[in-house]
Design a protein around this nucleic acid. Structure first.
Length: 200
DNA sequence: CCCTGATTCGC
DNA sequence: GCGAATCAGG
């Protein structure tokens, strides 16, 4: 098979839609995903909008080099006064700052309780807020399957109280071998052997 | 193991 | 230009 105009068109379309190379290859037929990827590169449309299935990594093109320009800064920011501070200003901690860098802190609290019987340990569980946020999001679009509707390809993460009518299983596409979808895999088992290296 | 895209390099 | 093999990562 060769890259006819038509096939290239399909390729572009699907790639633009965020389809994976293997999916495109299957659709086109007669080519492997490698061929697709190769063509994609040759066409110069490497980076897509959406990222790879799971990976949510963007291309950081910026460096924290210079001082971040102080833009619109509303109020409620008592500038630190090195000198002349008549009134005693006790160590008033600012809101909850995230050490890792950005968001959350209280949101998590709202997520877990509303959550479900976590397989591992519900309490004293320091799960990445990121993962939790992801879970709460995907649950909104979950399939809400019943026990019988579960298959080897549906996320088996239980949601709600089994003693209630409001009980269902996530049902989204599982992350390969795992019994859960990616989001739930994230909170299911934190400790994963990250022995990433398998040199040949 | 399954999967993803990225690169290389002989054709 | 093509794409299998390989690489690098989830």
């Amino acid at each position: 098979m060769s890259w006819t105009d038509e096939r290239v068109e399909t390729l572009k379309k699907m790639w633009g839609e965020g389809q994976s190379a293997s999916q495109i290859a299957k659709e086109l037929g007669g080519v492997t995903r490698n061929a697709v990827i190769g063509k994609v590169h040759r066409l110069g449309l490497s980076n897509r909008a959406g990222s790879t299935g799971s990976a949510a990594k963007a291309a950081p093109k910026e460096k924290p080099a210079a001082a971040p320009a102080a833009a619109a800064k509303p109020v409620a920011k008592p500038a630190p006064k090195p000198k002349a501070a008549p009134a005693s200003t006790p160590p008033k901690e600012e809101p909850e700052l995230d050490e890792n860098g950005i968001p959350i802190s209280a949101a998590r609290r709202a997520i877990i309780p509303a959550g479900q019987p976590l397989p591992p340990q519900p309490s004293a569980n320091e799960i990445s807020p990121e993962a939790l946020a992801k879970v709460s999001e995907i649950e909104k679009t979950a399939k809400r399957l019943t026990l019988m509707e579960l298959t080897e390809k549906t996320c088996k993460w239980p949601v709600g109280d089994p003693a209630t009518d409001d009980f269902w299983f996530c049902g989204l596409a599982v992350q390969q071998g795992k019994p859960y979808c990616e989001a739930h895999v994230g909170v299911a088992f934190q400790p994963m052997s990250s022995r990433r290296d398998r040199r040949r």
